[in-house]
Amino acid sequence: MRYRSIILLSAATLALAACGHKSETSTTTETSVNDTMVAADNVTDISTPAIPSQGQTFANAAAASDAFEIATSNAALSTSHSAAVKAFAGKMVTAHTGSTAKLKTAAAAASPAITPDATLTPDQQQTLDALKAKTGADFDQAYIAAQIDGHQKTLDALKAYAASGDVPQLKTFATSLVPTVTAHLNMAKGLKP
């Protein structure tokens, strides 16, 4: 009988131990699941920068192009000694100031509205900085080269967006500027320092 009591007592102890262990596992599992859920919630709280839309990207590029043309042309107006370069630069300031106004109007009419960011690209800023360090004929040659390169890149971007852009107001803007930018490119190619 004593042997039987020991066996029953041992079985009861094992059963209780198993229950206790099961409870701890369950609590540990629940805690792990809850910790994972909290961690997942924290991950969703991390703000990731939104990828700009095609329209926003185009508007930013067009605004930066205008800002670059205006800044480099203002530099030409104050630095160049060439009457032809100064005349061209004056036309560029006027034309690109007008283009900026048209861009803002088209972007504001989009749904949702777009706000163009005119921050120069690193390449544009580097070109502007290098240009400001030059004088005389070196300045004029660098200015003309920058105008040809800048207008060609702008023309390519306008044509591409006019063909496959996603914002109708910006497509119309791009299409309407192709002839003007083509004319500016041809004028820049004809400049002599």
Rank of each mutant, 00 (worst) to 15 (best):
K132Q: 08
T175Y: 09
D45Q: 12
A18C: 01
H96G: 01
D117G: 12
A67Q: 14
Q126F: 07
K86W: 01
L170R: 13
V33Q: 04
A106E: 01
V178E: 12
A64C: 12
A15S: 06
G136I: 10
A133S: 14
A130C: 10
K159L: 13
A101M: 02
R4T: 13
A76N: 03
T28D: 05
T36Y: 10
L128H: 09
P52A: 02
H151W: 10
A84Y: 03
A50N: 12
A63F: 00
L8F: 02
F58P: 07
D138I: 13
P116N: 03
A145F: 11
V181G: 03
T97P: 02
T105K: 06
Q54V: 06
N42H: 08
Y3C: 12
S111R: 02
H21F: 15
H151T: 08
L155M: 12
G165D: 01
Y143I: 13
Q147V: 07
G165F: 01
L16S: 03
A137N: 10
A163M: 05
M187D: 07
S164K: 11
T25Y: 09
A18N: 03
L14W: 02
A188Y: 01
A107P: 00
L177Q: 06
S99L: 02
D123L: 15
Y161P: 05
V43R: 07
P193C: 09
L128I: 10
L9F: 10
A118F: 01
F88S: 05
A95L: 01
C19K: 00
Q147C: 08
T13M: 08
Q152H: 06
T94A: 06
T100E: 00
